[in-house]
Nucleic acid binder design. Structure first.
Length: 550
RNA sequence: GGGCGCGUGGCCUAGCCAGGAUAAGGCAACAGCCUCCUAAGUUGUAGAACGGGGGUCCGAAUCCCCCCGCGCCCGCCA
C-alpha cells in the first residue's frame, strides 16, 4: 500500500464535509486541462443551484494553503492546487524515504505464475507477451509493497513433451541441442497422425514416465532442460528472472496428484476407467485417462494447492486460450477444495504473424531471440550514426539497452486483451511512443543535472505553465500505480510514462534550466531530480533500462 | 451452433470498468525549428460524428439490446 500525502483525498474529504453523497463520479482528476480536480454538479443540484454549491466549496477549501484557485464554470467547479505544494510533498518524501511514493509493507505474499510454456521449443514472441506481462505485473506488485515471487510451471509430463522426447529418440542421433530437438519435435508431429505405431510409442513413454521409471525420467529431464535453458536465457536477456521452476512430474512422484483425487472423492465419477468430475457448467472435467495417466487439469490442481502453502494471493498469467481452464480450475479449487488464497487470472491475447497464426509444431514462429537480436542491430545502426564519438563497448551497451527496452515496451504497452499482429516495422519502432523516447528524455534530464547534482533545499517557485504541468504530472504517479494494481494492468504505467515524458519535453523546450534566473534555478533542478526518480521507478516496472547518456 | 474478448482518422494505440466541458498520442503525408542544457527531440497543417442500428439518460466512444466483422475457446491436449 502507498504512503504519501494524498491531496486528492484531502480535497474530497473537505468537499464531502459540506456536500453529502459525493463520489468518484462527481469528483475526480480533471483530464481536460481546465484544472487539477473537477467537481461535477449535474447530479448534485439543479442548474439554478450550481452557484450555491460553488460558494460552499469555495468556503471550505479556500483557507487551505495548498489550494491555488477555485473557479466555477456552469456545472463544473474547477479546483487547482498550488504546484509548489505538490512539489514540496514529493521533495519531502524523497528526502525522507528516498522514494515517491513510499510504501507500507503489506503482509500478503503474492505468487505470480507466468510463461509456463511447454518446454518443446524456443520462446516465441507470442509466448513472450505472457512473460513480459507477468514480469511487469510482479514488479508492480512488489513496488506496492507486497512480497512477490514468480514461478514457472514446467510441463514435463504432458503429451507434447512426451512427443518431443520420443521424436528426439527416433531422429535426434543423440545430438541434444535446441535446434535438433525442435526439428525432431516438428518431424514427429508431422508423422504422428499417419502412423499409429508412433502414437503408441508416445503413449508407452508417457506411461513409463508416470510409473516412475528412473531412466525415462532422467531422459525426459535432460531433453527438457536443454529447451528450458534456452527459454531461461532468453528471458534473462529481457530482464526477466523467474524465481522458481516447478516441475509437474514432482507432483506425480510426490503423490500430490493422488491426494487431490482423494480430496475430491465425493465428486469423482468413472467412465471406462477414466476419472472425471463435473464443472459448474455441467461439462466433464477429466482428471485421469482410462490408461491411468494423469491429465493436466489434475496436475494443475495439485500445483495450485502447493502454491497456497506459501502465498496469500495467487496470480496466474495465462494465454486467452486458457480462459476455460481457468474458470474450471477456480470453480474446483474454491467450491470443492475450499481454496483459501485470493486467486486472480490475467489473460493475454495472441500475437499472430502477418502470415497467420504462430505454431511451434508447424514451424511458423518468430522467436524472442530473433526479435531481440534484430532490435539490437537496428538500435546499433542508429547509435553508430548519432554517436560517432563512442567506443564500441559503450555503443554496444547502449544498443542492447535500447533494443531490449523497445521490445518489452512495444508489447507491454498494448492492452493485454487486445490481439496483436507482429510486424517488424512496429516492433523496431524507436521514435514516438517508444522506449527510446522515454530513455532519451531521461538522458537529457541527466545531462542537465550533472551541472548541479543536489538541489533538494531552498524555496520553491513555479513561474511557467510547463514546469507546473510537469510537476502535477509527476505528482500523479502514485495514483497511476494504484490504478494499475487495482486492475492488474501494468500497461497503465506505460501510458503514464508517455504522458510524463511529453510533459517533460514541453518543459525542456520552454525552459532552459541551466540559464535560468537565480530565483528559478533551484526549483528546476529539483524538478529534474524528482523526474529522474520517477522515471527510474516506473521504468523498473515496465522493464525499460535507463542510461545516463545515449 | 454456444461462450469469452476485441472493433476509435490511411495504419497502430489511449480513453470504456466508476457516462459529462473541444475524442488524446504515435506512425505515414505536408510545411517549419539546432550561434541556446543530446534534433532518438520539437512546432504547425491536413485527417475520426468512436463497426452498424436501436434504447436508457439533461448528457453515450463509455451503460443495455440486436446485427456485422475479427480473435480465442467448446479434447480421456496443454
Amino acid at each position: 500500500m502507498l504512503l504519501f500525502p494524498d491531496l486528492k483525498e484531502k480535497v474530497e474529504k473537505k468537499i464531502s464535509s459540506v456536500l453529502a453523497g459525493i463520489n468518484s463520479k462527481d469528483f475526480d482528476w480533471d483530464q481536460t486541462g481546465h484544472s487539477d480536480f473537477s467537481l461535477r454538479c449535474f447530479r448534485l443540484a439543479k442548474p439554478d443551484g450550481y452557484g450555491k454549491i460553488c460558494d460552499a466549496v469555495r468556503n471550505v477549501l479556500s483557507s487551505d494553503a495548498f489550494i491555488d484557485r477555485i473557479e466555477c464554470q456552469g456545472p463544473y467547479i474547477n479546483i487547482k492546487v498550488r504546484g509548489e505544494a505538490a512539489l514540496e510533498i514529493m521533495r519531502d518524501e524523497i528526502e525522507r524515504a528516498g522514494i515517491f511514493p513510499d510504501t507500507f509493507q503489506d503482509p500478503e505474499r503474492i505468487l505470480v505464475e507466468h510463461t509456463s510454456t511447454n518446454p518443446t521449443g524456443p520462446l516465441h514472441i507470442g509466448r513472450a507477451r505472457n512473460s513480459i506481462l507477468g514480469d511487469s505485473l510482479a514488479k508492480l506488485m512488489a513496488r506496492m509493497g507486497y512480497r512477490v515471487s514468480t514461478q514457472y510451471f514446467v510441463n514435463d509430463s504432458g503429451r507434447q513433451v512426451m512427443g518431443m522426447v520420443e521424436g528426439f529418440r527416433r531422429y535426434g542421433n543423440g545430438d541434444r541441442t535446441l535446434k535438433t530437438i525442435l526439428s525432431c519435435y516438428q518431424k514427429i508431429y508431422s508423422l504422428i497422425d499417419k502412423d499409429p505405431e508412433i502414437r503408441e510409442s508416445v503413449e508407452n513413454l508417457s506411461k513409463k514416465y508416470e510409473e516412475g521409471d528412473e531412466n525415462t525420467i532422467r531422459e525426459v529431464k535432460e531433453t527438457c532442460s536443454v529447451v528450458l535453458d534456452s527459454i531461461r536465457s532468453s528471458l534473462l536477456r529481457l530482464g526477466i528472472k523467474i524465481d522458481d521452476y516447478v516441475w509437474e512430474s514432482g507432483f506425480l512422484r510426490g503423490g500430490e496428484t493422488e491426494s487431490v483425487l482423494e480430496m475430491l472423492s465425493e465428486y469423482i465419477q468413472n467412465e471406462d476407467g477414466a476419472v472425471f468430475i463435473t464443472g459448474d457448467d455441467g461439462k466433464k472435467i477429466y482428471l485421469k485417462r482410462k490408461d491411468g495417466t494423469t491429465i493436466y487439469f489434475l496436475r494443475d490442481l495439485a500445483y495450485h494447492l502447493f502454491k497456497a502453502l506459501n502465498a496469500d494471493w495467487i496470480i496466474d498469467v495465462m494465454g486467452e486460450d486458457h480462459k476455460g481452464h481457468a474458470r474450471a480450475l477456480s470453480h474446483v479449487l474454491i467450491n470443492m477444495l475450499e481454496y483459501r488464497p485470493r486467486l486472480d487470472f490475467v489473460f493475454n491475447s495472441f500475437v499472430s504473424l502477418e502470415t497467420g497464426k504462430m505454431s511451434t509444431r508447424g514451424g511458423n514462429i518468430v522467436t524472442l531471440d530473433e526479435v531481440m537480436d534484430r532490435s539490437r542491430q537496428e538500435a546499433e545502426l542508429i547509435v553508430r550514426e548519432k554517436r560517432k564519438d563512442l567506443e564500441s563497448d559503450r555503443l554496444g551497451a547502449i544498443a542492447e539497452a535500447v533494443g531490449i527496452s523497445s521490445v518489452r515496451f512495444n508489447i507491454l504497452r498494448i492492452g493485454a486483451e487486445k490481439a496483436m499482429v507482429f510486424r517488424w516495422k512496429d516492433a523496431l519502432n524507436v521514435e514516438g511512443n517508444s522506449a527510446p523516447f522515454i530513455m532519451y528524455s531521461y538522458a537529457r534530464a541527466s545531462g542537465i543535472l550533472k551541472h548541479e547534482p543536489d538541489a533538494m533545499e531552498g524555496e520553491l517557485r513555479l513561474d511557467e505553465k510547463e514546469e507546473r504541468d510537469l510537476v502535477m504530472k509527476m505528482y500523479r504517479y502514485p495514483y497511476v500505480l494504484r490504478a494499475a494494481m487495482d486492475s492488474l494492468k501494468p500497461e497503465y504505467v506505460c501510458n503514464y510514462l508517455l504522458e510524463l515524458v511529453n510533459s517533460f519535453s514541453a518543459f525542456y523546450s520552454s525552459v532552459n534550466v541551466i540559464k535560468s534566473e537565480e530565483k528559478n534555478r533551484n526549483t528546476r533542478f529539483l524538478i529534474l531530480h524528482i523526474y529522474k526518480k520517477i522515471l527510474e521507478d516506473a521504468c523498473g516496472i515496465a522493464g525499460i533500462r535507463l542510461l545516463e547518456e545515449m
